[in-house]
Design a protein around this nucleic acid. Structure first.
Lengths: 189, 189
DNA sequence: CCGTCCATGTTTAGATCTAAACGTGCGACC
DNA sequence: GGTCGCACGTTTAGATCTAAACATGGACGG
């Protein structure tokens, strides 16, 4: 993270002509008759939604001078509550990435003065929020959660619960058909 | 892509203890009283679903000896129909990645004998499916679409349409609040 | 006590993407 | 005609992740 780096690249730019999922399905049906294309529109919709959420999150974070990986690290420490300290392994488990990735994230955050590393029991390493990191994550978390809140502002509580339920059940169904490795989605904010 | 590489890494492994989204929301509410957490469960659910879909896709492709980027390239050419040839720019637009990424994807695929590059009109470069690539994408597309079909096998057509509709509308809402840059989701198969 | 094994962290190699720096056909405009 | 500038494609630098190679502290069994 380089908060005030003047060399920082410009924020995300304009949208692209998006190929329509139904056209894709139609193209497959035309080119490979007999192949099942019923899944194409929904699967595509799910992917595009997640991509849109991710881009929006990144855009918000870019404005705040940071990135998703750093927020994930800091917010995991913050949510853990006092004394805001976790080992590399605990972080890896909670952030759903490998320990190697945490090691690198911590190195970057430490370089920026946001966290501190100290030896813990045995061979463990404890990562603690530094004062600067604590102040930082407070701002970031509030901004991101408030931004996210806008995304569901127009939705009834009941609608929200139903949507969450559908998405969760579908996910479990998908996971049931193929085990999930570590890494990928950061569930938190 | 290295179809039969004996040095290939093992396929995706076991699941990880997943932090519950409601617990995350509760933790924020506890640590930062007043911050809105209503969005956390749904946003998390959407991300995790997309991650699950992605992992499953990757797992299927791993079995078939390839990867998502290559499939995206080959299937975009295949879906275009005869003569199965597109310029770098057309590919970039349809695959939703930068032209630089396409250049690299094509270099890899060309190295594997799946596509061929030839000069087109002006400064354009045309990428065409090589015979091996054509045969390959046929298998890949069928396998992937059939695997995806299982994911929606238990769902009524009407349910599917409704779900797609909700996801699409939510995505448009999200995109309306923050422009989408290029790159990210591959919509196709 | 000592050796084996396991869990933990870090480091490195490799993959892949974006953004930006380049090099270059071509058409527009004067 | 000549020049300018755009659009295209490639290349490079930098970011970030996973998997694997390492290194090491502790526990447990003999």
């Amino acid at each position: 993270m380089r908060p005030d780096d003047p060399q920082a690249p410009p924020a995300p730019s304009a949208p692209t002509a998006r190929p329509d999922a139904h056209e894709v399905a139609a193209a497959w049906a035309r080119e490979l008759p007999g192949v099942p294309t019923r899944s194409v529109p929904v699967v595509t919709a799910a992917k595009l939604l997640a991509a849109a959420l991710r881009r929006r999150r990144e855009s918000v974070l870019y404005e705040l001078g940071t990135d998703a990986a750093t927020l994930d690290l800091l917010s995991t420490l913050r949510r853990a509550g006092p004394p805001y300290r976790l080992t590399t392994r605990e972080l890896a488990d909670r952030c759903l990435v490998t320990a190697g990735a945490i090691s690198q994230r911590v190195a970057r955050a430490e370089r920026d003065g946001l966290v501190e590393r100290r030896a813990g029991a045995g061979r463990t390493v404890e990562v603690a929020l530094a004062p600067a990191g604590h102040a930082r994550v407070e701002t970031l978390a509030r901004s991101v959660l408030e931004a996210d809140d806008e995304l569901v502002a127009g939705l009834e509580d009941e609608t929200l619960v139903q949507l969450e339920d559908v998405l969760d059940r579908w996910r479990r169904h998908v996971e049931g058909r193929a085990p999930a490795p570590r890494g990928s989605a950061s569930p938190a904010s």
